[in-house]
Every structure is written in structure tokens, then in C-alpha cells.
């Protein structure tokens, strides 16, 4: 239903001014090719700066690509960007257009601007607020809500008025588990009843694994992999992730620990290692017995996640820390 071919966007280099260093030319999206199928929840996963938001802006007609084509439900979005608004609903990261409205008016106004007449807009508004559990907050301005509640109100605005494609840029940021569940069940219901397709931008690997049908992994503007979460994880099935948290300092005087250090990604007191199952067993035996155990605060042993896939596919280790695992 959505075909992207050879999409590219390069931000020009910015010359430094007094005191401020310049930035080099950035290829935000680099020859991106994707096919999103009808009725699936398709994810774009990557750390900040990977090009997810640029790609989404190009798909929603908010930004003209330098090269390539975007076709949604048979419409050429590069040539007719204004048609995007009549095919899809977009939830951006910014809520400043709605901040000073009440939850109820934000949803109603958005519905009206999506072409619904007053009666339909109000009926849709009531239904969506009820579905997301926002009815009690309907009269409160978005500005006065907590971050997660405000995000939920923005989701409500995105869901009013039917659209065959929902483009959601990190919809559940800051939400508690109850609100998250409400969002995913509302999305699932639309998919089951109307065949709605969802394009989801996320840097939360756990969420990506649980809700996505397929995921494209982005790194520095390129799609480095595209498959189901399970399919991607098979690529690193031979590995086990070991996380070690030291109390203060790692006991480098233990030779086995010193040897592990070369293979660990260090982040404060935490070491993350990707090891073959046999190696992992030996490593765990080492740190849980003898001198090293006194220095150990916590350890976990887990099957690989999409974060490991990202690293295995060549994503760099520092950017991987931008992926959220909660």
C-alpha cells in the first residue's frame, strides 16, 4: 500500500559562524527503499539521528525528497504532497499546535479539520476519548496534563476521523503501561475492523519486538535490514547477551574478567557482552564464583534483542545506546 523507492534527502553543510562550529553535509535518508503492506504494523527502528523522522516527513508530504518516489495507495506523494493529508493521519513529536486546547476540543477540532461535519466530529471525539480512557480529562487543557497524558491526547487527535494509514512518531513516549495498552488496543482494533495500516517510528526495542509485524532498521539514513522481528533475531540466534553490573569497579585483577573486557561494551558500571552460549556459561561461572563475585552487583543473561541485531548488522555501538530497552 506504500511503496518507497530510492528516497534521498541531503541537508546542506552549514558554515560555522562566530563561536558556533559548522556542520558538514548530512545524508538524512540515503537511497531508502521500502514496501509497506496493507494492514500491517510496520516499524522504523533506529537511534536518534538515524533518519527516521526525515523519512516520515517525506512520506507524509511535509518534506520534499531530493530523489526517489513515494506512492501511497496509488498516489504519488512526491508530486502531490497535499494528497497525503487525505490518506493518512500523522502523529508528530510536537504538540504545540494543540497545547492550549482542552483534550476534547483538540480532538474535535482535528476531526473537523479532517473533513468531518460537526455532528460526526463530536461523535468520533467522544468515541475515541472513551476508547483511550481520556473522558475524565476531556475538559482539561493539554498544557496542564502530565507528559504521558498529553501524548495520549495527541494520539486521540491522530485517531479521530478514519484514515487507512496511521503514521505515528514515537506515540507512547512518556506513557504508563495502562496508557500504552490503550493505544495498542485502539490501533489493533482499527486494524482488525478496517484493515488500517500503521507506520510506527520507535527507538524502543522492546515495544518494537512486541507490536511490530515487520521492522526496518535504519542507521545513518540507510535501511540496514528489513524483516519480521523474529526473522531479524534469527540472524543473531547463535549469541547470548550477558550484562554485568559491577558494584564499583570491575575486578580487573581477575585474569578472566580482564580478558572479557576487550569484548564488552562499557557504559558506566555496566558491561554488555555478546557471546556464544558456551562462552557465556563460562563467563557467568567466572563472575558468580570466586573473587569476581564480591565486585558483582547484578547480572543478566538474555536471548538477543533487536538491539543486538542492530549491532550485529553494523550499527555503531555508541548509537545503540540511544535505543531504549524498557
Amino acid at each position: 500500500m506504500c511503496a518507497v523507492r530510492g528516497l534521498g534527502k541531503t541537508y546542506p553543510a552549514v558554515r560555522g559562524r562566530r563561536g558556533a562550529p559548522g556542520t558538514p553535509e548530512v545524508r538524512a535518508t540515503d537511497d531508502v527503499t521500502l514496501d509497506i503492506r496493507q494492514g500491517e504494523i510496520f516499524g522504523l527502528l533506529g537511534p536518534n539521528g538515524a533518519g527516521k523522522s526525515t523519512l516520515v516527513r517525506q512520506l507524509t508530504g511535509l518534506m520534499r525528497p531530493d530523489a526517489g518516489s513515494v506512492e501511497i495507495l496509488g498516489h504519488d506523494i512526491v508530486r502531490h504532497p497535499e494528497r497525503a493529508a487525505r490518506i493518512l493521519a500523522y502523529l508528530g513529536q510536537e504538540s504545540s499546535a494543540l497545547d492550549e486546547l482542552t483534550v476534547s476540543l483538540a480532538a474535535e477540532t482535528t476531526a473537523r479539520l479532517r473533513g468531518l461535519d460537526l455532528r460526526d466530529a463530536r461523535a468520533e471525539r467522544d468515541a475515541v476519548l472513551d476508547e483511550l480512557g481520556l473522558t475524565a480529562l476531556a475538559g482539561r487543557p493539554l498544557k496542564k496534563l502530565s507528559g504521558g497524558q498529553r501524548r495520549l491526547a495527541c494520539v486521540a487527535a491522530a485517531l479521530v476521523g478514519e484514515r487507512p494509514l496511521l503514521v505515528l512518531d514515537e506515540p507512547t513516549t512518556g506513557m504508563d503501561p495502562v496508557a500504552r495498552r490503550a493505544v495498542w488496543s485502539a490501533v489493533d482494533r482499527r486494524r482488525a475492523e478496517r484493515g488500517t495500516t500503521v507506520l510506527l517510528v520507535t527507538h524502543n526495542v522492546i515495544e518494537a519486538e512486541t507490536v511490530l509485524d515487520r521492522v526496518a532498521v535504519l542507521d545513518q539514513g540507510k535501511v540496514i535490514a528489513c524483516d519480521t522481528p523474529a526473522g531479524l533475531k534469527e540472524q543473531v540466534a547463535g549469541e547470548v547477551r550477558v550484562e554485568l553490573v559491577w558494584r564499583e569497579k570491575p575486578p580487573l585483577d581477575v585474569p578472566e574478567v580482564a580478558a572479557l573486557r576487550d569484548r564488552a561494551v562499557e557504559s558506566g558500571r555496566r558491561w554488555t557482552l555478546r557471546l556464544a552460549p558456551e562462552e557465556a556459561r563460562v563467563a557467568v561461572a567466572t563472575v558468580t564464583g570466586g573473587a569476581a563475585f564480591a565486585a558483582l552487583d547484578d547480572f543478566t543473561l538474555a536471548t538477543p534483542s533487536l538491539e543486538d541485531v542492530y549491532l550485529a548488522l553494523g550499527g555503531n555501538a555508541r548509537s545503540a545506546q540511544g535505543l531504549v530497552k524498557a
Partner: peptide, 27 residues
Amino acid sequence: AAELGPKARLWPSMAAVYRAQLSRARV
């Protein structure tokens, strides 16, 4: 190509924006 959703017409959408902006005054 699939049929497009409706366009919002000028006057109703202007009224909706007007009303929303007016309500901002209170906040």
C-alpha cells in the same frame, strides 16, 4: 489509486480553527 478522504471545506474548517483559537484565550 484509492479514493482520497474528504477535504475540509474552507468555512467549516475556518470556524473550527477560530473556535479553537478563541478557547486558547481562556487558557
